[in-house]
Amino acid sequence: MDMGGHDMGSMSPPAAGGSGGMSMKGMRYTHMTFFWGKNSEILFTMWPGTRGGMYALALIFVFALAVIFLGSRRADACLAALARRAPAAGAVARTAAHTVRVGVAYLLMLALMSFNGGVLLVAVAGHAAGFLAFRAGLCGGPAQVEEDRKNDPACC
C-alpha cells in the first residue's frame, strides 16, 4: 500500500524531533513469516546483527535454553524429595525452579517469535537433546516415562 512514498512495513514511530516523515535509514523490518538467513534479531535489538559468528552464538544460546528447560523438569523431581524432608525449604526450592523454568520457556517463545528458521530448528533439536538426556533415562536414573506412568492413576 502506497502511503505517500512511506513504506508501512514497519511499525516504528518517526524519530523524535523529525519532520513527521519516516526515513528509510531509521526503519527496521520485522518478519511475520519464517525466513532463512543469519541477518536477524533474536531476543534483543541488533543481536546477533549481521556478523555470522554472533548468529552461531545465538543459535547455541537457544539450543542451550531448550536443553535447560527439559533439565529443569528433572530437577523438580529431585526437589520433591527435599520437600518431603524439609517442607519449607523444599517449597522455596521448587518455587525457584518453577520460576526459572517459566522464564526459560518465555525466552524460548520470544526467540521463536523472530521467525528465523534456524532458531526453530535448534530449539526443536535442543528439546530433543534435553528429552534424550533427562526424560528418556540417558543421564542415569529410570526413564521419566516410567515414573510418569506410576504416578498416573488413569494409566493403571
Rank of each mutant, 00 (worst) to 15 (best):
I60W: 14
V104K: 00
M11Q: 07
M46F: 13
A89I: 11
L138I: 00
G130Y: 03
A58F: 01
F34D: 15
C155M: 07
L82P: 01
M24R: 07
P13W: 02
M32A: 12
E147W: 01
W36P: 12
R85A: 12
S72M: 13
M1A: 14
G90L: 06
G90S: 06
M8C: 11
A136W: 09
R84P: 00
M24N: 06
G9A: 12
A105F: 01
A93I: 07
A128M: 13
L138C: 00
F69E: 05
P48E: 12
G52A: 11
A133P: 00
G26Y: 11
V100E: 08
A15V: 14
A83Y: 02
R84H: 04
W36C: 14
V62C: 09
M3V: 12
G52Q: 06
A136I: 05
T95I: 07
A15T: 14
D7W: 05
D2R: 08
H127Y: 13
T99S: 13
F35L: 02
K150R: 15
P87N: 06
G71P: 05
G18V: 03
F63K: 01
M27D: 05
E146G: 02
T45R: 02
F34P: 15
P153S: 13
A154M: 11
M109E: 08
D152I: 03
Y55T: 05
A91R: 06
M24A: 10
R28D: 10
